[in-house]
Simulated scan of single mutants.
Amino acid sequence: MISDIFRAVVELEDEQALELVQKALAEGLPAKEILEDGVLAGLREIGRLFQEQEYFLAELMMGAKLVEQCLGILDPHLPKAEGPKRGVVVIGAVKGDLHSIGYGLVAKQLELAGYEVHSVGIDVPAMTFIDKAREVNADIIGLSAFLVTTISNCQDVINYLKDMGLRDKFKVIIGGAETSQEVADRMGADGWAPNAVEAVKLCDRLLGYV
């Protein structure tokens, strides 16, 4: 069943994927297993195909939207994090970027891992990230840039933090279809993650949990 969900997600078979997710829940499979081993694994494979140029931006966006729909079904059944929070993350899409899908998945994975997450939405000015991070005493600022044309707006957040003497107060991570570790290094970000699962691992490393 999990492998069928994986295949349906990779092949962008929307109706089949959603039906299989519902069927898996009805048969008693754990929602977290369905999400991680079926749905998100499928999205990671779509990401690999995108990097290999076998899939293009349209397919990547279709896949992310399908995963978001699957998450809508699974969300009420996912276990809630217990114990003390691991950290506080402010996350959103930078100015000029109107895509919520990618960072929305990251936000959900972080919540499942025990993080307190504050989403600031899409098309967010640099100072809004900083103001929110100061307001909630965040540990990490997560910047999503889905398009090449908006990557420079991640740099704006880092530059403002430096100008305000706050660069050492917050860890800054980036992600998005056209970002990479090289891009993160070039702008002076603290890290980059290619997908939601790796984003959680990155946050854990930055805060010293691993």
Rank of each mutant, 00 (worst) to 15 (best):
M1P: 14
M1W: 13
M1S: 07
I2P: 05
I2T: 09
I2F: 09
S3G: 11
S3K: 11
I5T: 02
F6E: 00
A8R: 03
V9L: 05
V10P: 01
E11L: 15
L12C: 10
L12G: 10
D14T: 08
Q16I: 13
Q16S: 12
A17W: 01
Q22E: 11
Q22L: 14
K23H: 14
L25M: 11
E27W: 15
G28R: 07
L29V: 13
L29F: 15
A31F: 08
A31T: 09
K32W: 08
I34W: 04
L35Q: 01
E36T: 12
E36H: 13
D37G: 08
V39K: 03
G42T: 03
G42C: 07
L43W: 02
R44I: 08
R44C: 05
E45F: 15
I46W: 03
G47D: 05
R48F: 12
R48S: 13
L49C: 12
F50P: 00
Q51L: 13
Y55Q: 03
F56R: 15
L57P: 06
K65W: 10
E68A: 13
E68M: 09
E68I: 05
Q69N: 14
C70L: 11
G72N: 11
I73S: 07
I73M: 14
L74A: 03
L74W: 01
D75N: 14
P79D: 09
P79A: 07
K80V: 06
E82F: 13
P84G: 03
K85N: 06
R86K: 15
R86E: 01
V88P: 01
V90C: 06
I91T: 06
G92F: 02
G92M: 04
G92Q: 01
G92T: 05
K95E: 01
D97I: 04
L98W: 11
L98M: 14
H99G: 04
S100A: 15
S100C: 08
G102P: 00
Y103T: 03
G104L: 09
V106K: 00
Q109H: 13
Q109F: 12
G114H: 02
V117E: 01
H118M: 09
S119W: 06
V120P: 02
I122A: 07
D123K: 11
D123Q: 09
P125A: 09
P125T: 06
T128Y: 08
F129P: 00
I130C: 05
K132A: 10
K132R: 15
K132N: 05
K132C: 11
I141E: 01
G142L: 04
L143W: 03
S144M: 03
L147C: 02
V148T: 14
V148A: 14
V148Q: 08
S152E: 12
C154E: 02
D156Y: 13
V157M: 02
V157F: 07
I158K: 07
D163L: 14
L166D: 08
L166I: 08
D168M: 10
D168I: 11
K169N: 10
K169P: 05
F170L: 07
F170Q: 00
I173D: 00
I174Y: 00
I174T: 05
G176M: 03
E178H: 13
E178N: 12
E178W: 14
Q181C: 11
E182H: 15
V183L: 05
A184Q: 00
A189H: 03
G191L: 11
E198I: 04
A199T: 00
A199F: 02
V200H: 01
C203K: 03
G208L: 15
Y209R: 12
Y209N: 10
